[in-house]
Each structure stands twice: as C-alpha cells, then as structure tokens.
Design a protein around this nucleic acid. Sequence first.
DNA 1: TGAACAGTAGTCATTATGTGACCGCTGGTC
DNA 2: GACCAGCGGTCACATAATGACTACTGTTCA
Lengths: 209, 209
Amino acid sequence: MAFEKRRIREKENRKSAILKAARELFFEKGFKSVTVESIARKAELSKGAVYLYFKSKEEIYSQILLNDIDKFHKSVADLFEDGGKASDMLCRLSSTYVDFFLRDRELFRILITFMLHANHSNMPEDLQNHIIKSTNKTIFMEKILQYGIDTGEFPPSINVRQCRNALWGLLNGIISLYIFVGSEAKRDDLIRSTVNASLDIFIKGLKNS
Amino acid sequence: MAFEKRRIREKENRKSAILKAARELFFEKGFKSVTVESIARKAELSKGAVYLYFKSKEEIYSQILLNDIDKFHKSVADLFEDGGKASDMLCRLSSTYVDFFLRDRELFRILITFMLHANHSNMPEDLQNHIIKSTNKTIFMEKILQYGIDTGEFPPSINVRQCRNALWGLLNGIISLYIFVGSEAKRDDLIRSTVNASLDIFIKGLKNS
DNA sequence: TGAACAGTAGTCATTATGTGACCGCTGGTC
DNA sequence: GACCAGCGGTCACATAATGACTACTGTTCA
C-alpha cells in the first residue's frame, strides 16, 4: 500500500523528533537530571508515546551517543582523506577531537568512564560494543604517525604504538582536567590552547627523536 | 498541553495534503472522473481517513474552489493597489482573470454554470454563498472604470455599469469559446491574444466615446 | 535506623486516528 | 427490465497516543 511508506516516514520523523529533543536536554543537563517526561514534552508527545519508540531512557541515550560516535569517526576519516603533512593531520585530528567533546561533554564523561571502569553492567549491550569498536579506531592516529614516518617527517625510529598512546593520553588528560570545571567559554579556549601548545611541543619532540 | 498544538498542526497538514492531492486530480480530470479512493491514494491515506477530514467528495471540491476564488480576489485587490493608468489596470485585470481560469478550468466551468443555471441544488451551501459574494466583486471592474473617468483617461459620459458588464461578458465569452476545445498550449495562447486584442479595441472605443 | 516521603522510569486502560471490506445506489449494457 | 460495474460513503477493526497509576530508588528526619 502507498501509505505504508508514509507511515514509515512519519514513524522515523517521530523517532528523530524524540532524539533531537533528548539530545538537547541530555547535553545541557546530563543523563540523570533529564526526565522522560521532559523529553516527551519537548518532542510534543506524551511520555507513553516515547515508550512506543524506545524501550527505555537508556536506549534513547545510547542511540544518541552511537550516532555521535559515528559522526566523529566520519569526520576523522575525512580528515585523513584530505591529506597534507602528518603533523598537520595530528593537529586537525586533535582539534576535531577536542571540539567534538566540547560539544558533547556527557559523551566524554561516558567514554572516559568506560575506559576507567570495567563495570558496564547498566550500559546497553550495543553501546558497549560500539564503544569498544570505537576505541579500536585509535588506529587512525597510528596511520597518521606511520604516514609521517613514510614521508620522512618523523624519524623511523619512533615507536608508533607508544606515540599513539601518548597522544591519546595527552588529549584525554588535558580535556578531562578542565572539561567539568570553570565557566564555559573561558574553559573551552583554555582546553584548546593547552592542547595546541602541548601538541606542538610533542610534535617537535617527535621530529627530533 | 504542549502536544495539543502539534496535533492541530498535524491535522491541518493532513487536511492540506488531501486538498493538494485532490486539487491536482480535479483540475486534471474534472470532478466526476476523480474517485475519492484516488485522492486518498495520492495523499497517502485510506479512503476512510479522507472522510475523517471532509464529510463528502463535494466538500473537498468546494473547499478547493473557495480557496482559489479567494486567491483570485486577493490578486485582483493587489492589482488595484499597484496603481497606474486605468487602461493598464484593465489589461492586467484581464490577464489575471484569464490566467486564473486557464489554470483552473474546472472552476471556470463551475462559475459559468452557476451564472447560467439557477439550479444549484447539489452544490454545497457555503460554496453557493461564496460564489454569489464573488460575483458581486465585479465591483473591482467598476472601480477601475470610475478611476479612469476621475483621472480623465475615459470620458465621463460612459455608463460604468454597462461597460463593466460588457467587459465581463467579453472576457467570459472569449474564454468559454476556446477553453474546452483544441490542444492545450495553442489554445491558451489563442485565448490570451484574442482577449488582449479585443480589450485594446474596447479601450480605444471607450476613450473615444 | 527505619518510617515517611518525593521524584521518576515504565505500564496500561482509555481515547483518538487510520484502515479497507462492505453496502447500497446509480447509470450503462444487452 | 435484469444484470452488472463502479463508486460514494459507513463501520468494525487495527494502530498510535495519552496520562493516571504503580513500583522502585534515594533522601530526609525523628
């Protein structure tokens, strides 16, 4: 039937209306202090209707996160496609990473928590799997480093795996130092400039090792 | 409640989806050969749903017509606002009129039928009233003629009422001569050029009477 | 320490909206 | 004038949406 199509379309629209509303609320207030009722209201629906589209508050949340993680991966992949010098790529990757988490603080908290704790019992299955896959994608960093070696920008003596971990550590460490404290605008700039400066130093070091 | 708003909005959207579908079908095939089922399909709904929004096929039809008539009146009113010479206004009014009916042939048929027959028994009440009001609106034509007299373009000796009827007759007569015969593109041009030529002649006559 | 309470995730009976098989009428055919 | 095809309109049923309600959790305070 012709309206089968329309129905599917409308269902998807409802679903994304809920996700959109939830997204704004979650990233403003965090998971816990957002009520399902408030999501429903923002999406101009009743609470009951929300449960027609998602089976729990957590599911809504994880769908948003999955989506965001994918977006991040896509922009990182693009970055690699764009080419250029390896050191520039590292800078751009870092900026992308920082900006990504400045927009989605909650996600950063989740990912860091995920890395720090083995206990993910109350996190939906598919989100766990997705995050695991996602952390594997630090492989991009390795690729860039290898590319730097291949193009003669970095000496071949560097330990790629080690450098990768150092860089992720540096990024995550700086972000987590500042991300949940102080006033928003100033803090964001602080994070960005600290990351940039550290990265410069690190890259200089790399080139001379 | 917040979703009350959304519901109303969606109801209106459904209604206009039905009207849009119906409009295309009616003006392509005419009232009789369009089935409610086909309207429903085009609007991606079931027939039953159509009857949730309209109480009959006729109601759908007349809502479309009412809407179109209003649009026409609005564009005529605008035309008067725009100002200029009375003879130019007459030309523009005529063009608007012709183009309007070339787009909505069915409507022309209805209005002419309405004027020719007193029996409107199977026409919805509000459509009848609207059409009656609408025919009163030939007053625009009178206004333009009077304006022509006031600005000295037409001699004050002309009989405004008579001229108005002559002009409406001229327009309707020419349109009805051609509108339901021959191939579309050629015929439309034929109508337009015939109307323009006749109008030129009529206006020349007016100025010299 | 545990009784009373506040707040919220999730449920479910009720209502609103949408579907399509069906009915009856009409106009055409033979 | 018997038969039939086709369509407007209806209605029993199906799907979607609502919000009062339940059960649970964490907090307060005697």
